[in-house]
C-alpha cells in the first residue's frame, strides 16, 4: 500500500486535491481531514476548495493560513460572520470565545442564530457550523466571558485576535492582553447603520486612545440595535485585515480608524 503522500499525488488533478479524495484519504489512512490538508499543502497540493483563492494567495500563503491560529472574541453579530469567513479562507485554528446562548432577538442578524440553535451555546453552534463548512479547520470553543483573568490563557499561541465583543471596557482589556502577548488586534464595532474598524499592532495604543474617556458606558448600539447587514460588512472588513496581517500583505487600517456610515454610504478615515 502506498503511503499517504504518494496516494494523494496519484489522485491529484494537476496540483489540485479534490474533496472526495481528501475524504477518502482520511478514511483510508486513518488520519483526520485536517491532517490530510496539512500534508497536501506542505507538498505542493492545493485542496480544490481553495482554487478560487489561488490568484490572490500562493500555495505558501494557503499553508500559512492553515498553520495560523486566530482568536475571535465574541460569537454574536460580528463573530458569526468572522468565524464563517475565516473557516472558508482556510485559517487552520479558530479560538471562539463567548459565554452566551442564542436567543430569539439574535436571529435578525447573527449568522449562527437559527431556530434550531435557540438556547444552544454560541460557541457550540460555531463549532458545529465550522465542522460543516470546512472540516479541515479546528474550532476551539471557549464558553466563558473573556476578561483579564482568563485572557492570557485564551489568547495563548494566537497570531491575531479579532474583536467581536459588545462591550467597550472588555475591548480595552482585550487590547491590554494583546499588548502583553504581542498579538496584533483587529477591532470592529457596530451600531445601527454605523461601525468602526481599526487594526493595532503591539506597541500601538490606538484603541486605548480612541476610548480614553468614558469607556465604561455603551455606545450608540444601545438605542439603535443592529440590523442584518452592518455586522456582515464590518465582520468582512475585519477578516480582510486579519488575512493581511497573517500573510503580511497590503496596508492594514493601522494608526487610523475607519468610520463606516451605511446610511449616507460614507467611509471616513480618522487619523489616530
Amino acid at each position: 500500500m502506498p503511503d499517504l503522500l504518494t496516494w494523494l499525488k496519484e489522485r491529484a488533478k494537476d496540483d489540485l486535491l479534490l474533496w472526495a479524495d481528501q475524504l477518502s484519504a482520511a478514511n483510508r489512512f486513518k488520519v483526520s481531514i485536517r491532517e490530510v490538508e496539512g500534508i497536501a499543502l506542505e507538498n505542493g497540493l492545493l485542496p480544490a476548495r481553495y482554487q478560487r483563492n489561488r490568484n490572490m494567495f500562493c500555495l505558501d500563503d494557503q499553508l500559512k493560513l492553515y498553520n495560523s491560529k486566530v482568536a475571535v472574541i465574541g460569537c454574536g453579530g460580528l463573530g458569526g460572520y468572522i468565524i464563517e469567513e475565516l473557516a472558508r479562507l482556510g485559517v487552520g485554528t479558530i479560538v471562539a470565545v463567548d459565554p452566551d446562548v442564542f436567543e430569539e432577538h439574535n436571529m435578525n442578524r447573527q449568522l449562527l442564530a437559527t431556530p434550531e440553535f435557540l438556547g444552544i451555546k454560541k460557541v457550540a453552534a460555531a463549532a458545529r457550523r465550522v465542522d460543516r463548512v470546512n472540516p479541515a479547520v479546528e474550532l476551539l470553543p471557549v464558553g466563558l466571558a473573556f476578561g483579564l483573568e482568563n485572557g492570557k490563557q485564551v489568547l495563548e499561541g494566537c497570531h491575531v485576535a479579532a474583536d467581536a465583543l459588545d462591550s467597550i471596557s472588555v475591548r480595552l482589556e482585550l487590547a491590554e492582553i494583546c499588548q502583553e502577548l504581542n498579538i496584533p488586534l483587529v477591532h470592529g464595532a457596530i451600531a445601527g447603520w454605523y461601525g468602526y474598524l481599526m487594526t493595532q499592532f503591539p506597541g500601538e495604543r490606538t484603541l486605548q486612545k480612541f476610548f480614553t474617556h468614558n469607556s465604561q458606558e455603551s455606545g450608540l448600539e444601545k438605542h439603535l440595535g443592529n440590523p442584518s447587514f452592518t455586522p456582515a460588512v464590518v465582520a468582512s472588513l475585519e477578516v480582510s485585515e486579519v488575512c493581511k496581517v497573517l500573510l503580511n500583505q497590503g496596508t492594514p487600517m493601522r494608526r487610523r480608524c475607519l468610520s463606516i456610515d451605511l446610511l449616507d454610504m460614507e467611509f471616513v478615515e480618522i487619523e489616530c
Binding site: G76, G77, I168, G188, A189, K209, S218, G219, L220, S259
Partner: peptide, 25 residues
C-alpha cells in the same frame, strides 16, 4: 483632522468633527 480631548479650546475658523461612540458586536 487632529484627535483632541473635550477640554480642548477652539479657535476661530477651525473645523470640529464629532464621531459617536459605537461599541456593539
Amino acid at each position: 483632522g487632529r484627535h483632541v480631548t473635550v477640554d480642548q479650546v477652539l479657535y476661530t475658523g477651525v473645523t470640529v468633527s464629532l464621531f459617536p461612540k459605537v461599541g456593539g458586536g
